[in-house]
Amino acid sequence: MLYTLLCYHQEDVVCAWTKEEDDAVMERLAVVQERLARAGKLGPVARLLPTTAATTLRKDQDPPLVLDGPFAETKEQLLGFYILDCENLEEALGIARELGAANPGGSYEIRPVGLFHDGGARP
């Protein structure tokens, strides 16, 4: 069984870390990740850019509505995610619209990935 670990934290606090503090956290994480990768247990890892870089496509209406900022409603739950390789936001929004047409309702939050490595574990 593959499990997803979703990382939540207070953004304004994390953004206030100094470079040294951030580096120290990333180093400590790397030690754990390294061990998991060796055991073949690590899948893709992504660190997302701040929510200020996010755009949300609300697909509960036709045509879907593009909003600046992260997904904010709480009555909907996170049910899955995609990782896409796109030239720019316009392309990512295009794909989101296409997916949205196949599965209307809810929203997609489109957030650039800051850091990515493909852990290597496969189901």
Partner: peptide, 16 residues
Amino acid sequence: RAMISEGLALLDKAVR
């Protein structure tokens, strides 16, 4: 690179 990615992403959003 991380700052550049964030900057480019924000500009991309702005231009829309």
